[in-house]
C-alpha cells in the first residue's frame, strides 16, 4: 500500500498538462528523495507564483506589479505594437531580439467552432490602448492557421479605419529548410508571397 500523502501528490502532479500517471510517480519519488529544502522551496515558489504574478493592466502579459517590464521599459518603441495570441508567443518573439516595440496579448484567438468571439479576447482593451494615437503600426502575430487568420482579419477591420498601419508576420519556408521536404500548404503560401530580389 502506497502512503496516502504520496498518492495525493501523484494525483495532483498528474493533473498538470503533459504529465501522465507514470511521470507523476517519477516526479513524486524525486521530490520524496530530494533534500527537505527542495520541497520547501518548491512549495514557496508555487505559492509565490499564485500570489504575486498577475496580468499587466496595459498589455496583459505577466507581471508582479501593475505594469510589466515590456510596458515600462523606456527604450522600447511606442509607435509599434505587436499583437500576440498568448504569452508563449510573446516569449518566442522576444527571443529573436529583433522586435523593440510594445506588445499586446489577446489571450486566445477567435474560434467559431469553439464559440470564442471578440468579447472573450482582450480586443476591447487593445482598442482603448490605441486611442491615444501613439501607435503607428500594429503587427498581428497570430498563428498562420484558420483561427489566427480570422483574428488577424477581424483586427484589420477594426484598426484600418483608425488610420493605423496593420501588418502581418510573413509566412513561408523556414530558414535553412529544404524545399523538397516542405509541405504543400507552406510551399503554396511561400510562392504566393514571393518577393522581388
Amino acid at each position: 500500500m502506497t502512503p496516502d500523502p504520496l498518492n495525493r501528490l501523484v494525483a495532483q502532479l498528474s493533473k498538470l498538462p503533459g504529465i501522465g500517471e507514470k511521470t507523476a510517480q517519477r516526479l513524486a519519488f524525486h521530490i520524496l528523495r530530494a533534500p527537505d529544502d527542495y520541497a520547501t522551496e518548491l512549495v514557496a515558489a508555487l505559492q509565490e507564483v499564485k500570489s504575486k504574478v498577475r496580468l499587466c493592466t496595459r498589455c496583459f502579459s505577466l507581471t508582479e506589479g501593475q505594469l510589466c517590464g515590456f510596458c515600462t521599459d523606456p527604450r522600447r518603441d511606442d509607435r509599434v505594437l505587436c499583437v500576440v495570441e498568448g504569452i508563449a508567443d510573446l516569449m518566442a518573439l522576444e527571443k529573436t531580439r529583433e522586435f523593440k516595440g510594445r506588445y499586446h496579448v489577446l489571450h486566445g484567438v477567435l474560434s467559431p467552432l469553439e464559440g470564442i468571439g471578440p468579447e472573450q479576447l482582450r480586443i476591447q482593451e487593445l482598442l482603448v490602448r490605441l486611442e491615444d494615437g501613439k501607435v503607428e503600426e500594429v503587427i498581428v502575430a497570430t498563428n498562420p492557421d484558420v483561427e489566427g487568420e480570422a483574428t488577424a482579419l477581424y483586427l484589420m477591420r477594426l484598426l484600418k479605419p483608425m488610420g493605423i498601419r496593420v501588418t502581418r508576420l510573413a509566412q513561408g519556408l523556414p530558414m535553412g529548410g529544404d524545399l523538397e521536404f516542405a509541405d504543400q500548404a507552406t510551399l503554396a503560401r511561400a510562392l504566393s508571397g514571393r518577393r522581388e530580389l
Binding site: L113, V146, P174, F181, D183, Q184, A185, T186
Partner: peptide, 13 residues
C-alpha cells in the same frame, strides 16, 4: 510534426 501533417489538418481542407 512539420512534415507529416503541416498545414493539412486545418478545417475545410
Amino acid at each position: 510534426s512539420r512534415r507529416r501533417f503541416a498545414g493539412a489538418l486545418e478545417p475545410g481542407t
